[in-house]
Write a protein that binds this DNA or RNA. Structure first.
Lengths: 225, 225
DNA sequence: ATGAAAATGTCAGCTACTTTACAATGGGGA
DNA sequence: TCCCCATTGTAAAGTAGCTGACATTTTCAT
């Protein structure tokens, strides 16, 4: 991988706006790249040394396997998101892995230790990073709060609203979302069974609220969702 | 409040181990104290300027009120925990507040801006703080994962196990937990109705797994929980 | 001590889900 | 082009846990 390209990849991320070119290059030295396509499994927590990953392109889900062998979605990572040892502590026994949801996934990574060194030299980065992690925590907290106290229908609506806000293409009150999730994925995210999710989605389609297919989801009127 | 006492209060917290005495004193200047007793409500998010709080003594719960006026437990804060604007971003519209669970709650606080300044001057503090926030995130994530995928009984068991690990007094396989929660509180935490929680607790008592009363909870054999 | 309020105990519906089971569809690789 | 398998659709039966409705017990302030 050419140094210059690596530099560009990291530089692009708003977390690194506070860093000078030379500092970014310092990180780049150990930067590695991975490519994947839909369905590919990307291990990260068990890898040799603790790393932080940056998703440059595509979408992935972080899943873990429970005692009964059931896949459990922990997080959906989108373009520009960081993932991995965000806590700055390696955690060997989590048995989590990532799975590509789209074709053309590209991930770059750097060593946790290098990142720490850089933070020590650059307190501003530390501050930015802390805010970043904090924001992520807030998002997770909100998501889960909904999961506990609301019923499946509300959860689905909330999920669609957030998804639309995050990645939808707005055209007045109409929104188009590029759909890289199966109904089974959505069910996992909103914490319900696949059948219930299917039923709710079809119900919404009957009411002309959305139009669902495997490629995209059209929301007819975002304000009515 | 005497300067020396303030200093002692902060110094005691492991987050501040990396700071020198003079640095802690810098924070102390603006430190404020609050005292509360059981049932008291402590507002913090809406207060004048963003602050970070440190619970020095007692236990409190962070709750928010949803559209229907239902109280929702967001977090249980224990002695030594930080809370408030942990994300380093003020968030006016969260309408959260804290409620004292025990008598003799004492809280100290400092200004977010002062803390940020200190972090800029002391990268090590930034690193420690980031790890701290990250750890909190991991805890929240795990808790919520359980809430979604497990049934009420499992959730109660997990909660009791964690509570015991966190604050229980072990004596071989027997554990004593000082009980500052009502069954309604526990129900909220494990995301179930009060009646179900009561039923499950009584069921466990019938099976001699625990002995519950308002003052304390005895776990007969931690390994069987 | 004594009444009121808070906390706990219990039970009978009821409902939103899950599970199981299978059918229909459609997209992509040989 | 056609077949296969992942995805989606649908329905019946079963159930965990919620709601509401009380009874009982404990706590605490006066």
């Amino acid at each position: 991988m050419y140094e210059e390209l690596k530099y560009w990849y990291l530089r692009d991320h708003k977390l690194f706006w506070t860093l000078s070119m030379s500092q970014i290059k310092q990180l780049c030295i150990i930067t590695g790249f991975k490519k994947a396509k839909k369905g590919d499994i990307i291990y990260f927590s068990s890898s040799d040394v603790p790393r932080i990953f940056l998703l440059k392109k595509g979408n992935i889900k972080i899943v873990s396997i429970d005692e009964n062998g059931n896949e459990m979605i922990k997080d959906i990572i989108q373009k520009g998101d960081l993932f991995g040892e965000l806590t700055l502590e390696s955690d060997k026994n989590s048995n989590e892995y990532a799975k590509a949801l789209t074709d053309e996934v590209s991930i770059c990574s750097f060593l946790l230790s290098d990142f720490e060194d850089l933070m020590l030299k650059n307190p501003n980065l530390a501050l930015t990073y802390t805010k970043f992690v904090g924001l992520k925590m807030k998002r997770i907290k909100n998501n889960y709060s909904n999961l506990i106290s609301k019923d499946a229908k509300t959860r689905l609506h909330t999920f669609l609203r957030e998804w639309a806000e995050r990645e939808g293409h707005f055209n007045g009150n109409k929104v188009t979302i590029e759909n890289y999730l199966t109904q089974a994925d959505i069910a996992q995210i909103i914490g319900t069974s696949r059948q219930t999710a299917t039923q709710l989605l079809n119900e919404m389609e009957d009411k002309q609220l959305i139009y669902y297919n495997r490629k995209e989801i059209l929301i007819d009127d975002f304000s009515k969702l």
